Deep mutational scan, measured.
Amino acid sequence: ELREAFAKVDTDGNGYISFNELNDLFKAACLPLPGYRVREITENLMATGDLDQDGRISFDEFIKIFHGLKSTDVAKTFRKAINK
């Protein structure tokens, strides 16, 4: 299930999730959020999830993000976006 969610976000299939891919995910989900809020959520996920600070999120980092977000608003938003 997590591998499928990761693949859905990794639209270019390079094995990593970029800032733009995350941002595009939230935009495509048509969530009722202003653009600046989408950017804040994306920046927050990148800042906390990109553990090796290479500017992208690997599958291992994605798993840690996903499990670390349990019930936060960001987690709910992220799950809604993935499930669209």
Rank of each mutant, 00 (worst) to 15 (best):
L2V: 00
L2F: 05
L2T: 01
R3D: 02
R3T: 04
R3K: 08
R3S: 03
E4G: 07
E4L: 07
A5I: 15
A5R: 00
A5E: 02
F6L: 00
F6C: 00
K8Y: 08
K8A: 06
K8Q: 09
K8E: 05
V9L: 10
V9K: 02
V9M: 08
V9I: 14
T11F: 02
T11W: 02
T11E: 05
D12F: 05
D12E: 09
D12L: 06
D12M: 10
N14Y: 02
N14V: 04
N14D: 15
G15H: 01
G15L: 00
G15F: 00
Y16A: 02
Y16T: 05
Y16S: 08
I17V: 12
I17Q: 00
I17E: 01
I17L: 02
I17R: 00
S18I: 01
S18H: 09
F19C: 12
F19L: 13
F19G: 03
F19E: 05
N20G: 11
N20Y: 06
N20A: 12
E21G: 03
E21L: 03
L22T: 00
L22A: 02
N23H: 12
N23P: 15
N23K: 14
N23C: 07
N23F: 08
D24F: 02
F26K: 00
F26S: 01
F26T: 01
F26H: 01
F26L: 14
K27V: 07
K27Y: 03
A28D: 07
A28M: 11
A28V: 12
A29L: 15
A29G: 07
A29N: 05
C30A: 15
C30N: 15
L31R: 05
P32L: 02
P32A: 06
P32M: 04
P32Y: 06
P34T: 04
P34K: 04
P34N: 06
P34Q: 06
P34W: 03
G35V: 10
G35C: 11
G35P: 14
G35E: 15
Y36C: 12
Y36R: 13
Y36Q: 15
Y36I: 13
Y36P: 15
Y36F: 09
R37S: 09
R37Q: 15
R37K: 14
V38N: 03
V38Q: 06
R39P: 03
E40S: 04
I41A: 04
I41P: 01
I41S: 02
I41L: 09
I41G: 01
T42P: 01
T42D: 03
E43S: 09
E43T: 07
E43P: 01
N44E: 14
N44G: 12
L45Q: 03
L45K: 04
L45V: 07
A47W: 04
A47G: 09
A47I: 06
A47E: 11
A47V: 07
A47L: 09
T48K: 11
T48V: 08
G49D: 07
D50W: 05
D50T: 13
D50I: 02
L51P: 06
L51K: 10
L51Y: 13
D52E: 14
D52G: 14
D52W: 05
D52P: 11
D52V: 11
Q53W: 05
Q53D: 12
D54N: 10
G55H: 04
G55D: 10
R56Q: 13
R56W: 03
I57L: 09
I57R: 00
S58Q: 03
S58A: 02
S58V: 01
S58F: 02
F59W: 06
F59D: 01
F59N: 02
F59L: 08
F59T: 02
D60A: 08
D60V: 03
E61L: 07
E61Y: 02
E61H: 10
E61W: 01
E61A: 10
E61C: 08
F62A: 11
F62M: 04
F62P: 00
F62C: 14
F62H: 00
I63S: 11
I63K: 11
K64D: 04
I65Y: 06
I65L: 11
I65V: 09
F66W: 12
H67P: 05
H67Q: 13
G68V: 11
L69M: 10
L69G: 05
L69A: 10
L69Y: 05
L69P: 06
K70P: 09
K70Q: 14
K70L: 13
K70D: 11
S71Y: 11
T72Y: 09
T72V: 08
T72Q: 12
D73Q: 10
V74D: 14
V74E: 15
V74T: 13
A75R: 11
A75W: 07
A75P: 14
K76G: 12
T77H: 10
F78Y: 13
F78C: 15
F78K: 15
R79N: 14
R79V: 11
R79Q: 14
R79D: 15
R79C: 13
K80E: 13
K80S: 13
K80H: 11
A81I: 08
A81R: 13
A81H: 11
A81C: 10
A81W: 05
N83P: 14
K84H: 12
